[in-house]
């Protein structure tokens, strides 16, 4: 945006405000904007309240134990959500760990290094990946990726781990391609295009003068990326990461297919686990009474986790700005 743009729109604004038509239109416009914003807030509040009301019977029955208990038993009506909660956090974190470097690499390559002719092709491919429905990722993960991964990665790792070592604990599980790690990898593939596309858009907002001057000072590509463009877009980049993390936390179908759906506390990367979203997807259909309430309470927990993650992201953003 150049300064001339601002002044011209400003003068048009003044002209409109002086006309009698503007007088009647402005309050309506303001009212509509206000209504849109409050409708959003009201929806958010409504969801939160109805989740709380729906989940209250379970929360009242189990209290804090709902968050720490590891038993999920629909027959005896005992519900502890520690397994799904930990599963959600681990899969989302591992997915982010895998996809962030790749997304960054894709974005930097597209903006800094890519020949013009290739840029369109890769850019379109990234957007196409983002458009694939999650159930397709789930099917592909279950029928294609899981068996491949079991054969080529899990089985060798499990057999090669020394008995009693940390590796043996980390890689414990059944080598059949279902479990925490495979779910995380599928999640990583799913959130990759969002993060890559957003990061690319962000990097393109860096003014060419800034970048060119850094190159002019003799900086290498790596230095330009790390010291100039990345700090320039850091605020937005955290937003892009949060977008990915938010999707990873809430992703349902693809995870349900491959995580192994065990409510136990996961002990290793190849262990079967569950996430909050997968548990709800699995059981809500046939649930009634306290089980349904426990599932709604799970939804509330996921809501709060997402809220906390977003808040943390805001706080993290604020600190470097002050330093």
């Amino acid at each position: 945006m150049s300064t001339t743009d601002v002044s011209s729109s400003g003068s048009a604004d003044v002209a409109r405000r002086t006309s009698p038509r503007g007088k009647t239109f402005d309050p309506i416009f303001e009212g509509l904007c206000f209504a849109a914003a409050t409708a959003l807030l009201a929806t958010l509040g409504g969801v939160l309240i109805s989740l709380f009301i729906g989940g209250w019977p379970a929360l009242k029955t189990f209290g804090f134990g709902f968050l720490t208990g590891v038993t999920w038993d629909p027959v005896k009506d005992v519900y502890g959500a520690a397994g799904p909660i930990v599963g959600t956090l681990i899969t989302a974190a591992v997915a982010l760990l895998i996809s962030l470097p790749i997304a960054g690499g894709v974005a930097f390559f597209l903006v800094e290094l890519c020949p013009q002719s290739l840029r369109r092709t890769i850019g379109t491919a990234v957007e196409l990946l983002a458009g694939i429905p999650s159930i397709v990722y789930g099917m592909w993960g279950l029928f294609v990726f899981a068996p491949f991964f079991a054969r080529t990665v899990e089985a060798p790792l499990i057999t090669s781990a020394a008995p009693g070592s940390f590796a043996e604990k980390l890689f414990s599980g059944i080598p059949n391609g279902s479990g925490i790690l495979v779910a995380s990898i599928i999640l990583a593939i799913m959130i990759l295009p969002f993060m890559a596309a957003t990061l690319r858009e962000l990097l393109m907002t860096v003014p060419p003068q800034v970048r060119e001057s850094a190159y002019g000072l003799g900086a290498t590509t790596g230095e330009v990326v790390m010291k100039v463009t990345l700090p320039y877009v850091s605020r937005g980049a955290v937003g892009a990461v949060m977008l990915g993390l938010g999707r990873a936390l809430g992703e349902t179908m693809a995870v349900t297919f491959i995580i192994g759906n065990s409510h136990d506390f996961p002990h290793g990367l190849f262990d079967a686990g569950s996430t909050i979203a997968s548990t709800i997807a699995n059981e809500f259909n046939e649930a009634s009474g306290l089980q349904a309430s426990a599932l709604i309470a799970l939804g509330l927990v996921l809501f709060l986790i997402t809220f906390i993650v977003l808040t943390l992201a805001r706080l993290m953003l604020r600190q470097p700005a002050r330093a």
Binding site: D73, V75, V78, F143, N176, S178, G260, N261, A272
Partner: peptide, 23 residues
Amino acid sequence: SVNWPVGIGGKGNDGVAAFVKQT
């Protein structure tokens, strides 16, 4: 749905069949 002492869960008949075939 019960609190399974052991094992992994597949979604639907296809999910169970896929895990059995792969393991």
